[in-house]
Design a protein around this nucleic acid. Structure first.
Length: 568
RNA sequence: UGGGCGAUCGUUCAAUGGUAGGACAGUGCCCUUUGGAGGCACUUAUCUAGGUUCGAAUCCUAGUCGCCCAGCCA
């Protein structure tokens, strides 16, 4: 793996049962001197999301810790759902997260071998061709509490099974007319062991093998053997596959091949977030979002566009660990790790989202000067830059109140505040429009406070960001909020849909924000902290002279909290 | 009500028979040229009942609660 070692120093990886188990296998030489081998096995039927980041982190990270290797293997056994678009996006996303694979593999690479093994099982009397219809197979399977019953085709001769299966493969039968089944135990308490289907007939074109095959292996028949072929020692997957472990082992034992072992861990769940490929696909197809990479989506491509960093995601995943309990992690935990990362690394800039004009009456008309501003107070090595200042500036509408509420430290009539890195100013008067809204504030400044400190040592309560009106550049800024209003998006009253929980205000577009001129050179994907506002990154929709920013996250806002408390 | 898996602060992860600890969230204070960041402090947890043991979150038994499984999806 090729992580860029920028992990936060305090992001200790806590112990977890997976690491303990691998360590024990290494200690006891369960696989002799063979290297630890894992795999990340997505089905290319959609875009990767933050939940996959956990599997990726575990598959690649754990192997790496033990000096092992990891393959990226596409589990492409169902041609009806899989597309090349997805195999490309998946590779891009894994790399973006900071991992690289030993081998790039496909389950479809093994179709030939899997077919030979099926023939072998038939000859051994361990598999048979069943002519029952899908619906009949379901009925014969029994229920959770009642055993199933044998198919009338279960005792066909080896010769007949062999002949029928070869003809299935040769395309002599229509879709759904027959399947190949493993002969195990129709009375097993584990439904997966009641003669599971190994192959189905599908006259469908596969994204890689084209029309070479018209029978395709089922997941259970393909997965363990694919692991075995790749000498995978530890095959990690999510908890819902725990019931499949007996069948995973059965095929490997019957075939006498490399004994890969399956280990299950819990899926990642986040509050206010949907992590179901099916539903994510629906959001895209029905236009509830602008695409797979919409910055509100939990897909890796979405959060990347939103401005999240692989470093933060890795630190987050490391902190949540892996267990076998199913919980829901507070989305604020992810946001914390993202702010933590960006706070250390993001260049600062001043941007006014909702401008209010301030005229400094005693500042010479036509004069301009430059003030020196730190690019990142957290990182002196980031250096400084010169920001233009003039008689007319913009401040945030929120930073002025004609009638200040209690504990409001910002600008109000008669109050003195600091313009960051510039001067102290005091509000003197206002200009209002016909509706009575303040549209302009007139101030005076203290020339002695250049740089933001008064030589007499007097203090001000508030420091505010600003942009020189004559130098400002305009930009579009997209503000995002949670996509869903409920902590559990599926939490709906009887007959409702998770779509009812969509947040109608998940995106707000500010069309004419005022930015300091240095931002004119910002490039796509550049990340900034707009001081006192939040973290932002340049969206690919930007064009020369027309910048578009996405708000990754707002800064924590103590004042908003005070205001909210006062209101309640 | 068959089988599998699980249960520790509000949330999440640790403690691997020996002081229940960290992170997030919350609250208060300090500090601050970002009401950001940082620092300090505080609050809150071993599902229940038995048992083994000098000693149990950890081992055993029973119960309770939760999740998963009846695709020719993965």
């Amino acid at each position: 793996m090729t992580t860029s070692s920028t992990e936060s120093p305090d992001a200790r990886t806590p112990s977890n049962f997976l690491r303990d188990l691998i360590a024990e296998d290494v200690r006891t030489k369960k696989y002799g001197n063979a290297v630890i081998q894992t795999r990340f096995p997505p089905e290319p039927n959609g875009y990767l999301h933050i939940g996959h980041a956990k599997a990726i982190f575990l598959d690649f990270g754990l192997a790496d810790e033990f000096g092992g290797k990891t393959n990226l293997r596409f589990d492409d056994t169902n041609p009806e759902k899989e597309e090349t678009e997805y195999v490309e996006s998946i590779q891009k996303d894994v790399r973006w997260l900071g991992f690289d694979w030993e081998k790039l593999c496909y389950a479809s690479d093994y179709f030939g071998q899997l077919y030979e093994w099926a023939l072998q099982l038939i000859k051994a009397g361990k598999a048979y061709v069943d002519d029952l219809a899908a619906e009949e197979i379901r009925q014969y399977r029994g229920t959770l509490t009642e055993p199933g019953k044998d198919s009338p085709y279960r005792n066909r001769s080896v010769e007949e099974n062999f002949d029928l299966f070869v003809r299935m493969k040769n395309g002599e039968f229509p879709d759904g007319s027959r399947v190949l089944r493993a002969k195990i135990d129709m009375a097993s308490p584990n439904l997966n062991m009641r003669d599971p289907v190994m192959y189905r007939i599908l006259h469908a074109s596969h994204h890689r093998t084209g029309d070479a095959w018209c029978i395709y292996p089922m997941y259970d028949y393909a997965h363990g053997q694919s692991d075995s072929i790749e000498n995978v020692t530890h095959s990690m997957c999510t908890l819902e596959f725990a019931d499949h472990q007996p069948i995973y082992r059965w095929y490997i034992e019957q075939l006498g091949i490399f004994p890969s072992q399956q280990i299950e861990f819990d899926r990642l769940n986040l509050t206010y977030t949907l992590l179901s490929k099916r539903r994510l696909l629906q959001l895209v197809q029905e236009g509830h979002v602008r695409g797979w990479d919409d910055p509100r989506m939990p897909t890796l491509s979405g959060i990347r566009r939103r401005g999240f960093t692989p470093e933060a995601i890795r630190a987050f995943i490391a902190s949540v660990g892996a267990t076998r309990t199913n919980g829901i992690i507070d989305i604020e935990m992810l946001e914390h790790f993202q702010r933590d990362d960006l706070n250390r690394r993001a260049a600062r800039a001043m941007a006014v989202l909702r401008p209010l004009k301030v005229v400094i009456d005693n500042y010479p008309e036509g004069k301009e000067e430059f003030v020196e501003v730190a690019n990142n107070p957290e990182d002196p090595e980031a250096g400084t830059r010169q920001v233009p200042f003039s008689r007319e500036i913009y401040i945030e509408q929120d930073d002025f109140r004609e009638v200040p509420p209690p504990k409001y430290y910002r600008l109000s009539p008669g109050k003195e505040v600091r313009l960051r890195n510039a001067y102290f100013i005091t509000a003197q008067s206002m200009v209002k429009d016909a509706a009575g809204s303040v549209i302009e504030v007139h101030c005076t400044y203290d020339p002695a406070s250049h740089g933001g400190n008064s030589p007499d040592g007097r203090k001000v309560k508030s420091t505010m960001h600003w942009v020189s009106a004559t130098h400002a550049i305009s930009a579009e800024i997209r503000l995002y909020d949670k996509l869903f209003v409920m902590p559990d998006p599926s939490d709906v009253p009887e007959g409702g849909s998770y779509l009812d929980n969509l947040n109608p205000n998940s995106i707000e577009i500010v069309t004419d924000a005022k930015l300091e001129p240095s931002l004119a050179n910002a490039k796509i994907e550049d990340r900034f902290q707009f001081e006192r506002v939040g973290y932002f990154c340049v969206d690919p929709d930007s064009a020369p002279g027309k910048l578009v920013f996405n708000r990754t996250l707002p800064l924590k806002d103590t004042w908003a909290k005070i205001e909210k408390k006062a209101a309640s």
